[in-house]
């Protein structure tokens, strides 16, 4: 199990590629009813960087994330996590890839209600039968400020706390890439900002790689780089985005 190199290249410009798709195409249905969600997309995501994927509804941004994360399969083209071509993996290999090498934060319903916060965080490790790296765990918990909440069940936590537990869960295995699917979508703006701050520090302080889909320009402004999708194609990108810059771009795309 290799984790990201600690020697970190400059943001978004490093040679090390954490995730990459080539000629990624995804179509739903067939014949006249066929819908093209991804149209020969080629894009890569640098290790140790925080990348946001944006685009209007139906642009294919979520599909791209799901296909890169091994949650969905491409119709054609290739997707790589590190050097692994995930299109060639079986369902079981994909499952183990997600468990051991990736982290996930969904918009909502990230946690199993019967498990405590701590158990939810260590769930991927437990599923793998691996021991928890105590030092790393403490570091993650401390940076997320979850120390006192570890024994609570999700129902006893606020929405923001639940999402922080989800972030901790995603980071627990020291994954190669953490994928976020609208992680702040269900939070109010203050809690959302807090969460984005944690993701930012996961990249800056813990050396993690984050790829996040969002439709919120404020959220995107926390990233090092924003990739814009429209009609299933990559149409543009911004380095070191600001809220206004993103808004401008979105307006141009008609989102």
């Amino acid at each position: 199990m290799t984790s990201t190199s600690v020697a970190k290249p400059p943001r978004g410009t490093g040679q090390s590629i954490a995730a990459r798709v080539e000629q990624a195409t995804k179509t739903y249905g067939s014949g006249d009813a066929a819908v093209v969600a991804l149209d020969a997309v080629t894009v890569d995501f640098a290790a140790g960087a925080f990348t946001a994927i944006m685009g209007p509804s139906g642009s294919g941004k979520s599909t791209l994330l799901h296909c890169m994360a091994g949650l969905d399969t491409l119709s054609s083209g290739q997707a790589f996590i590190g050097g692994t071509d995930i299109a060639s993996l079986s369902d079981k290999e994909l499952t183990l890839l997600r468990r051991d090498r990736l982290g996930f934060i969904f918009q909502a319903f990230n946690l199993l209600p019967v498990l405590t916060a701590r158990e939810n965080i260590t769930l991927p490790l437990d599923l793998a039968g691996r021991k928890v790296d105590g030092e790393w765990f403490e570091k993650v918990i401390a940076s997320l400020g979850l120390g006192e909440r570890l024994g609570h069940r999700p129902a006893q936590l606020s929405g923001g706390q639940q999402q922080r537990v989800a972030v901790a869960r995603a980071l627990a295995t020291k994954p190669e890439v953490v994928f976020g699917d609208e992680p702040t979508g269900a939070l109010d703006s203050r809690t959302g900002a807090e969460l984005l701050g944690f993701l930012r520090s996961a990249v800056d302080d813990l050396g993690q790689t984050v790829v996040m889909v969002t439709h919120d320009p404020v959220a995107a402004s926390y990233a090092d780089r924003v990739v814009f999708l429209a009609d299933g194609r990559v149409v543009d990108e911004l380095q070191a985005p600001t809220r206004d810059g993103v808004l401008e771009m979105m307006k141009r795309l008609g989102g």
Partner: peptide
């Protein structure tokens, strides 16, 4: 359904 899906997403195998 959602819990089981979540388990699968974070790496539970079908067998698990």
């Amino acid at each position: 359904t959602r819990e089981l899906g979540l388990m699968r997403a974070v790496g539970a195998t079908r067998r698990q």
